[in-house]
Design a protein around this nucleic acid. Structure first.
Lengths: 229, 229
DNA sequence: AGGTGGATCTCGGAT
DNA sequence: ATCCGAGGTCCACCT
């Protein structure tokens, strides 16, 4: 108990393991019966409750919450809460096998990831012919009333081209997204001239292919760089 | 080292804390410089690397991976890998402040959540007039070529109604989803008769409202039950 | 504070 | 295995 309160007070990362029940009430509500779990309390107000399986925590509280620790009828009770939106997590331990508190010093810079959609965008902007011969990019993140177009440009015949990028295989949602942008451009340029919409991704699902054809949109297969390179 | 290998071998949940570098290569690739982190190795093959901030792990490996531990030039190195897709996580500790291994007994049943989309669906099916007077639900998860319609029914005048449910405030994506279902039904029933598409959610964003009007779709404000109840 | 879309999204269900 | 959509998604970025 003291270790936990001291750890939270001094901005340390606190870990607990033991048999507990968990209750949540906020954006939704949930109950979790008694069982052994690992609890992680971060100095930024994050709380995570992990069982033996699954990548996702079975219960959690996002950053910005306030953790408190108390004893109730001999049981250690950890609560984490916030307002806006109002939500509260309560962890009641029936037994406690382990408590740890660790100072986390610096975090000079975060993780650097390669192979994102931004990398795919850079790759295509440096080699516009990867889309097709004669493609000329004019802008990235070009705003429309429907949202920002990933890459905006013209083709060899001067037609407007809307490119939507995805780093992985895509389904119907990406096609709809592309369609919204093309429709919005038609409206804004109030032209009947052809506007081409091209989806760029490693591959597409069957329904997405049907949707593309249905709406006269195109697909170009392209993967984010520096995989298999 | 022995504690970790024994813990992994006997299907325990293993925790480590220390200064480490992390490398990932697989669906993408990432590098993480030296710093203090909390590592969680689950018996189902999940690996999680947490820094002091954020709800999401800075690096991870999904369930089904194989964890291995080795000493390399005096440093503890944890690797977690899988094939299909091929990806590998490598955690090299420069110092190790803590190692724990915990037996996780039963997990009788998972967490029970209230306030999901399914609850909203049940709520609406029990009280069809919440959508509008005269609404008659006929099916849930009705299949179309574009996917499954949340609730399918008819209105007081016998018109077909497609209902798309969302448990929270929605944006343009939900409108496009509804639109795909309505379009698909038009095609399948090959009728020119009116098919109404109704989005049911607590609220909608501005762009979503525009999209709804643009495509003659409707909105009904409704929240999942048992909040504020 | 809200809107929008990406993510090594994860997860579950269905095919 | 893939497809599809939900999620207390989280998260960064922008207005």
């Amino acid at each position: 108990m003291t270790l936990v309160t001291e750890g939270l007070r001094t901005g340390e990362l606190v870990t607990l393991f033991g048999c507990c029940r968990v209750e949540y009430d906020g954006r939704a509500a949930s109950t979790l019966g008694s069982g052994n779990r690992h609890v992680l309390l971060k100095p930024d107000g994050t709380a995570l409750v992990h069982t033996a399986t699954g990548q996702q925590p079975v219960n959690w509280q996002p950053p910005g919450c306030t953790h408190t620790v108390a004893m109730d009828e001999g049981a250690l009770v950890v609560t984490s809460e916030r307002e806006t939106p109002a939500e509260q997590l309560t962890i009641r331990f029936e037994s406690l096998e382990h408590v740890g508190s660790f100072q986390v010093t610096d975090e000079p810079e975060g993780v650097s990831v390669v192979g994102t959609e931004a990398d795919l965008s850079d790759h295509l902007l440096e080699n516009p012919s990867l889309l097709e011969s004669g493609f000329t990019p004019l802008a990235t993140e070009r705003e429309t009333t429907a949202g920002a177009i990933d890459i905006y440009g013209t083709d060899s015949e001067g037609r407007t081209v809307v490119v939507e990028l995805k780093r992985r295989r895509v389904g119907p949602d990406a096609v709809s997204q592309l369609r919204r942008y093309v429709d919005a451009l038609h409206r804004e340029l109030h032209t009947d001239a052809e506007i081409r919409g091209i989806l760029v991704a490693p591959s597409v699902t069957g329904r997405a292919t049907s949707l593309l054809e249905e709406h006269d949109l195109e697909f170009v297969a392209l993967e984010p760089p520096s995989r298999d390179v």
